[in-house]
Each structure stands twice: as structure tokens, then as C-alpha cells.
Design a protein around this nucleic acid. Structure first.
Lengths: 182, 182
DNA sequence: TACCCCATGTAATCAGTTACATGATTAT
DNA sequence: ATAATCATGTAACTGATTACATGGGGTA
């Protein structure tokens, strides 16, 4: 069969997250990507291309409906009743374990075969990146608190980001000198 | 052009990790996968199929050399001088940021639209999984200590796994009752 | 009013996952 | 000696990333 896996195909998590966002009202691919980046980006990496492709598929299978093309080809989508049901079905399945791909740790793991100054420079750079990310999440936290707390689920996932970044920074600080200052 | 990206193509991180392992002597795809799973699995997810494909590509570009087919079609590979150089070139590039895909957190993020008992059950199950993973890493730690400590880089990456799992468990424990016990 | 940037999207390539196949050992 | 299991690998498919295209809005 040549059909691109229609109707009965199980929803993938990226598609499900789009349906999740669409519970709050219609949005275009661009908007959905922007929202996803801040709301779930810390633990669910995706790209704009994926968003557009999944939206197209969701429309083909009737889980979302496209509206009228607006300015700059802006194409808004809204959730259908089938989409709502598909989201719930997805939510009822036990999620699989997380996958992590952390290239810096790969370089660290093979540090034995890497020039020490190179590895040290890599680690210093990435430590700085994580400091910035933590600062960003802390900013989100005060913003959320100022706005009255909001949804406890959003708070919980932001809390995960905060704890994760703090842990990464603690890991950097616990590295032995022979690795960070060769 | 139809060629499958030969010669000058930049090494991807999975391929680079294989070259990293091959510094310790020749090995088959199956062995490499087994080693990778324990040594870098916690922060670099891969599958056996990827291992085989990358080995084939590395052999095509001369970065590894296949030996004699052994029993059960076992095909050992060893690092070439070009492979060693390619590994170093990879090690000299600044690694990109980590990507994380944590479906459980996706379900949590959209918890507003998920039946509360379902979400609670998901969280309980995953907490148990992380407890087991932490126990596994702690086992690896004592095994490494018993074996005399070993390479500090390996210790550092194992330490990352330990800190990560502890943090995840602390996050579970910090979840509000309205989420874990609805 | 010309220029640049940003919003919006598509196409082509590359990586990752799932499902399958097969022959060697090991256990009963 | 037969069955079960495990080591080893390939093929097909799905998902992710990179590179590109284009037109509207704001700004010098």
C-alpha cells in the first residue's frame, strides 16, 4: 500500500502535542512552533518542518481543520472532535522512556582520546550555555508567578527544566581538575 | 548527485562514538552496540540498526576496515589511521546542545486536558522506572570503584547519569498532590 | 521607496525505529 | 535430537534536520 498511513495510525507524540496546543484555540504552524518552543522545548525538541508536516497529516485524517489562508500564506488550524478524541487516546497510552542525545557528554566519555585543552574548552562553553538557559527558565518562573501562578502542570514542567539545568551546572562544578583544567 | 555522501562528509556523532570505541581494539557491530548501551546509553540513545549502517558507511569511506567474517556472520571492524584522524576532527568541533525527548513530560504539560487518574498512573509508573535506573547506575558505580576507579572520563559521565536520575526522582517527589493524587 | 527582516511555508536529505531473517549455541 | 535462545545482521518505514523559497511590513 502506498497511502501515507491514514486513519487508524497511532498518533505520534509531536502530533499529539500540536493537538494539545490547539485545545486553546486555532493557530498557524508558525504560532504553534513558537509556543511549543517555550512551553515544551526544554524536554521535547522539534523543528518547524515537523510542525508543518504533522499539521498537514492531521488535516488529511480529519483531526484538525484548516481555516482560510490569511496574509503571508498564514494557514490557521483548529481542533476537530475527532482530534479531541485522538488526543485523549494518546493520553491514555503509557508514554515511552525519554531519549537524550547529549553530544558534549559523548566527547567527555571519549575524553581519553581527545586533546585535553579541547575538551576543557568544550566544557567551559557548554557550562556557560547552561547558565544562560537556567537564567531564562528563572525568568519564566517569575513571569509565571507575577501572572498569578497559572496552570500547575505548566509549573511542574517548568520546574523540571529548572532542576535539570541546576543539576547540569552542579555536574560541571563537580568535574575533577584533571578534566576541566588540564 | 546520487552518491550517499562520501569522503568529505562530516562525521555524525553516532559514527564518531563507534570510532571512539574502536580505539580499544576491533569489535563487531553487535559488540559495539552492547558496549555503547552501557557506556553512553544514558545520554546517547542508539539502536543496533544504526550501528550497522554507520559501520558500513565508515568502511566505505575507509575510516574502519572489516576483518574476516567469523562464526554467525560476525564481522569485526578495526580503526584505520584515517578513522583516527576523523575522530580527532570530530572531537575538535564544538558539540551542539543536547536534545531531550521526554514523552511523560509532554503528557504532564498537557495535563489540563488529560484525565487526572491517567496522568497519576503514568507518573507513578515512570517514577518506578527511574528508581530502577538509578539503582542500576549505583551498581555500575560500585563495580567501577571495586575495579579501581578506572578512567576519570567514564566516571564523570556515569556521575552525570546518577545526578540526572536523582534529580528526576526529586522532581517526582516535589509534584503537588493535585497532580499525583487526584 | 528601497532595503531588510520576519513570518510563513516546502523540498530534499539524513538519522532513527520497527520488523524481520538466519544460523550458532545451549539446555532439556 | 529437538527446542529454545541468542548473536548477528538487513530492509522498510517513520521521523527529524537542513536548506531553500517567497512575500508582507516596518524602517532609514
Amino acid at each position: 500500500m502506498l497511502q501515507p498511513m491514514t486513519s487508524k495510525g497511532e498518533l505520534n507524540a509531536t502530533a499529539a502535542s500540536l493537538l494539545g496546543f490547539l485545545h486553546d484555540g486555532e493557530a498557524s504552524g508558525y504560532e504553534l512552533y513558537a509556543r511549543a518552543e517555550v512551553a515544551i522545548g526544554p524536554f521535547w525538541s522539534l523543528t518547524r518542518s515537523q510542525v508543518y508536516r504533522e499539521l498537514r497529516r492531521l488535516a488529511e485524517t480529519g483531526l484538525v481543520e484548516a481555516g482560510e489562508t490569511g496574509v503571508r500564506d498564514r494557514l490557521p488550524y483548529r481542533l476537530t472532535e475527532d482530534g479531541r478524541a485522538a488526543f485523549l487516546a494518546w493520553a491514555g497510552r503509557m508514554p515511552s522512556d525519554e531519549t537524550i542525545r547529549f553530544p558534549m557528554l559523548l566527547q567527555t566519555a571519549f575524553g581519553r582520546h581527545v586533546p585535553p585543552e579541547l575538551l576543557a574548552a568544550t566544557l567551559a562553553e557548554h557550562k556557560a550555555r547552561h547558565e544562560r538557559r537556567l537564567a531564562g527558565y528563572e525568568g519564566q518562573l517569575v513571569a509565571a508567578e507575577d501572572a498569578g501562578g497559572g496552570d500547575p502542570h505548566a509549573r511542574a514542567t517548568l520546574d523540571f527544566g529548572l532542576r535539570y539545568e541546576r543539576t547540569v551546572l552542579e555536574w560541571f562544578d563537580a568535574l575533577p581538575d584533571e578534566i576541566v583544567a588540564p
